[in-house]
Structure formats: structure tokens, C-alpha cells
Design a protein around this nucleic acid. Structure first.
Lengths: 193, 193
DNA sequence: AAATTAGATTAAACTAGTTTAACTTGTTTG
DNA sequence: CAAACAAGTTAAACTAGTTTAATCTAATTT
């Protein structure tokens, strides 16, 4: 049970659970260890789980027709990740979700999530608040990506998520920021002078 | 009461309401008529309402430091719109929400929404599903905006939302698609040949 | 109906960011 | 530990989309 402490804390930001509710909730979860470079979601397969990262680092990305990777999300300890669209509609994924470090995941399946809503309706509230904030975050990211220059986007990341710059390789950062590795390299070295 | 038929139908996509629940729900709503060019949300003021469009057309946009407008969302009859981030966090807005036609809106205030959750918890479910789909839609839009060329984005809009091209002026379409009016004009006229 | 203003078009000059390519450094793996 | 590969750097050539500016058209206002 202590293995699920972190996710219970995460959920408790929005709703309060009794001891029995915690037990029911965790009985519907599964622990999953993945190694660096493993994929937990791939295009054409339906995304089966909502994934919470107990420890580790993952990213989701889209592979363009031109073979270019577009990183959609970066996530580390205590964050959630998946191909959200595939999961909620239970339709084939369009994204890859890849472990960037050996990671410990806590997952709930689509089936179990539906059961959770039946047994503990307060989880409707949890995932409402979770999704609302998620939507706000994506919108903020989109706004930045269309209204800011490459350099401004890099500076914002430096300021807001300095850990990411250590934890993810440069080519992933570049693709998350919507620029080439070459251009990111140019920005970084210009800034040193 | 018949004035609220459309929003009840919208809500009934996800949850089922009894006659009494419908009455309770609609008692927490307000009708609002707005004229073309009126703003229902402005930066620095906290967004007070979640807005459903009974009839009409609105857009939300961000004003960059350079004075450029970045259109975030377009919405017509039976769609929802607002500065979502400002609304959910009850913090000052960063967006404008402007009526592009004389419109009839149905709104719920933040206070009344909290009351709605107390009295009719099934609305947690409605707004969970609503937010999840909203998040998926924003993500899809972001993906297109970073991985497609200006011309591809225009073609996708032509195919997916042809009504928008009639209903919104070209400068709004251009700013929604993330390009200048001049460039959109070039694309449109190239395609005729 | 004239005057004013807002939106759309066209074209030339420009630029932020990409592409291509060659080289360097670091990291797996046999 | 050598070989092979993956990640990062630098620089020159290039291009998708912007900027500037002038003209045209269609609404709105007076």
C-alpha cells in the first residue's frame, strides 16, 4: 500500500478520501516499471491507461509525415501523462509516449476508471479539476508557441522549468520548444556572450 | 423555460436530467444578449462566467506586446467559450472575448457553478467530460499549429469548418490560423489557379 | 449620397528559423 | 578498449512566412 502514497497525495489536492476509499481506489491501480527508451503508447494502438509518474521522466511526441518529431509534453515525478485523446475516446493513438529515464508508473485502465466513477463518484470531481487545469496548461503552452520567438520560449523554459533542461536531452527540449537542435544550440551559445 | 432548451440538449449529451433537475439547473443560469463588437471578457478583469452560445458567433484572442492579435478560439451556436484559465482560477483574464455577431448567450457564474456541484453532483461529470474533450481539442489544434504549414492549416479549416470561413472575417481567420492576412490572401488566390 | 473607416489584395524587400553538411564529443555495446 | 552510434556544435545557403506600403472594395456613419 505504501507504494501508492504519492498518487494518493496527488489526488488529495482536490478531494478527501477515507481510509476505505483509499483502499478501493488503489485496488484499481497497477504499478508498472519501465526502462529508458521504452514506449508505453504507440500510434495505432488504443491508449489503455491514464499514467501517473511515481518517479522518472517521460515525454509524448508526434511523428510528422516528414519524419520530424514534435514533442507535445514533458513529464517527471508526480506528473500525469498519456495520449489523452486516444484514452478518453478509446480510439487509436497518434502519439508516442516514451520513457526518457527508468521510471516507476502508476496506471489506471479505462475500464477501472469507469468502475471508479461508479463506486466513488467524487473522482468525477478529481478528474474534472485535473482536466480543467490540464486544458488551461495546454492553452497557455499553445499561446506561447504562437506568440513568442524561439529565444523567448527558451528563456521561459529556463525560468519556469530549469529542472527540465538538466533532465531531458537537448534534442527533446528543442522539439518541445518548436525549433531545431541547431537553432537551440545557436541561442544557447549566443546567450553566453 | 423554453429559452434554455438548447443548453439542456447540450448538457444531455453527457448526463440525464429529470424535469426538476432541469429546473434547478436553469434557475442558476442567466440569458445575456450582446451586440457585435461587444466584449464579454477583457484582460485584467476576472472572468465571471462560463458562456454557452445559444445563437451567434464569438472569438477569444490574446493581444501580444507587439500589438498583434492572436485568436485562440472561434465559437458559434451551441459552443462554449470564455477565458477558461481566468474562470477556473478566478484570476485576472489575459484574453479578450469579443462578439463577432449579435449573439444570445447563456451564462453560469462561478458562484452558481459551485452551488450546482453541491446540489447536482452529476454536473461534476458533465464538466469533466466537457473539459476532457476541450483539452483534447486544444491539443489537436496545437499539434496542427506546430507541425503543419500555413497552407495545410488553411486547407484543414476549409475541410473541417467551412462555415467559419463564411462567418468570420478574413483577418480573424488569418489570426486563428497563425499567419498574416496578406499571407492568407496569397494562399487563397494561389489556390484558384 | 458623400465621406469615412475597416477589410482585402498585390507585390517587393526582408528575416527568423530551417536545411544541409561537416566536425566534435560523449556514450553504448560487442 | 575499440568501434559504432547518438547527441551536440558551427556555419553557410536557403525558404516560409512577415513587413511595409500602396491600391481597391465594401460597409457604416453622417
Amino acid at each position: 500500500m505504501t507504494e501508492f502514497i504519492s498518487i494518493i497525495q496527488n489526488v488529495s489536492r482536490f478531494i478527501t478520501l477515507t481510509r476505505e476509499e483509499e483502499l478501493l481506489f488503489t485496488s484499481l491501480l497497477r504499478m508498472q516499471k519501465v526502462r529508458k527508451k521504452q514506449f508505453i503508447v504507440q500510434p495505432e494502438y488504443v491508449c489503455q491507461y491514464r499514467t501517473y509518474i511515481a518517479t522518472g521522466a517521460l515525454r509524448s511526441y508526434f511523428m510528422g509525415n516528414d519524419g520530424q518529431e514534435y514533442t507535445i509534453a514533458l513529464a517527471v515525478d508526480d506528473w500525469w501523462i498519456s495520449d489523452f485523446t486516444s484514452y478518453i475516446y478509446q480510439e487509436p493513438a497518434t502519439l508516442f509516449v516514451e520513457a526518457m529515464e527508468n521510471s516507476t508508473l502508476i496506471q489506471i485502465s479505462y475500464q477501472n476508471e469507469q468502475m471508479l466513477y461508479e463506486k466513488l463518484p467524487k473522482f468525477e470531481r478529481f478528474f474534472r479539476l485535473h482536466s480543467q487545469r490540464g486544458a488551461a496548461a495546454i492553452q497557455k503552452r499553445m499561446l506561447g508557441s504562437i506568440s513568442k520567438t524561439a529565444e523567448e520560449r527558451y528563456e521561459e523554459m529556463q525560468k519556469k522549468y530549469p529542472q527540465f533542461l538538466q533532465r531531458f536531452p537537448q534534442y527533446v527540449i528543442a522539439s518541445y520548444l518548436g525549433m531545431t537542435t541547431q537553432f537551440l544550440s545557436r541561442i544557447r551559445n549566443q546567450k553566453l556572450k
